[in-house]
């Protein structure tokens, strides 16, 4: 079931000026409840615009954004309520930190929801755990943290609102490999424990292969391909034609298949390809 859906959505920047620019061109796409959907595309393909539309920061020039089948712009005054249900973590979110302590900053969202202090404290601790923030950092000033810790604090600030749907724009950009796995792993834990839906914008095909269930490929303001991870990565030529790549390991697997070695199964993570090759080699030996 699609919990969030775009129906024929177009969006134009600077409408009516000489700088008019069509960012999204009649996009229709649905996102399944309880899944992690990756959104990939070249720079300028409309990914970030899409994230802003999903959470009601921008209003589509035409078309509708549907949450559980109802337009989020049905009652424009209630858009703030929608934003609590659809959490958005923007690109380089550490910009948004402002409060005196990390704890207070993470609590900003829940406080805006009008929750009582006990509930806020509970949610802040929970969000900090998912984002991997050490307890001793909670009473420090957010400006004293390192870059990676700031990123975690900013993500926790959105997790603390316990959104049903979480939209993240490059949450791991510019982090070291360990930071990446910890943050993305924490997000997956959140998604599993709350049966939440996650939309993940990323440039890293490896991350996509590892964490996502479905993938949406965007190109020049349109949806190019959608499908499950294996469906999308099987079409590596098409992806390359729009300047995208499949994970390195998937390229190796596809190359082996082209050379007449029949591999099957999950062919886009290192572990999956290893298993496929091993079972192929075993099959050869038994003959």
């Amino acid at each position: 079931m699609n919990i969030l859906e775009l129906r024929d959505v177009s969006y134009t920047y600077n409408r009516g000026t000489p700088f008019e620019e069509l960012a999204l061109d009649s996009v229709s796409v649905g996102f399944e409840k309880g899944k992690i959907t990756g959104i990939i595309g070249h720079t300028g393909s409309g990914k970030s615009t899409l994230t802003h539309l999903l959470n009601g920061l921008e209003k589509p020039s035409s078309g509708d954004v549907l949450l559980c089948g109802e337009s989020i712009w049905e009652e424009p005054k209630k858009i703030a309520q929608i934003r609590f249900r659809i959490g958005l973590v923007m690109q380089y979110p550490e910009y948004q930190l402002f409060d005196e302590t990390v704890r207070a900053d993470i609590g900003f969202g829940p406080r805006n929801m009008g929750l009582d202090e006990d509930e806020i404290a509970r949610r802040v601790d929970e969000a900090a755990r998912f984002a991997g923030i050490a307890p001793e950092l909670m009473d420090k000033s957010p400006f004293d943290l390192s870059g990676g810790q700031k990123r975690r604090a900013a993500i926790a600030g959105v997790l603390a609102m316990r959104p049903e749907i979480l939209v993240l724009d490059e949450p791991a950009a510019g982090l070291d490999p360990r930071g990446r796995t910890e943050i993305l792993g924490g997000l997956r834990d959140y998604q599993r424990s709350r049966n939440a839906t996650i939309l993940l914008v990323s440039h890293s095909m490896e991350d996509m292969a590892r964490y996502c269930d479905n993938i949406v490929v965007m190109n020049q303001g349109r949806i190019y391909v959608t499908g499950t991870v294996s469906e999308v990565f099987a079409r590596s030529e098409e992806l390359q034609s729009v300047g995208l790549n499949v994970p390195e390991i998937a390229r190796i697997a596809n190359g082996l298949i082209r050379r007449g070695i029949p591999l099957s199964g999950d062919l886009y993570t290192v572990e999956g390809v290893r298993r496929a090759i091993l079972s192929y080699v075993k099959g050869e030996c038994e003959c």
Partner: peptide
């Protein structure tokens, strides 16, 4: 935008 997304 970021603070609005947090319900400001």
């Amino acid at each position: 935008s970021a603070q609005k997304a947090r319900g400001a």
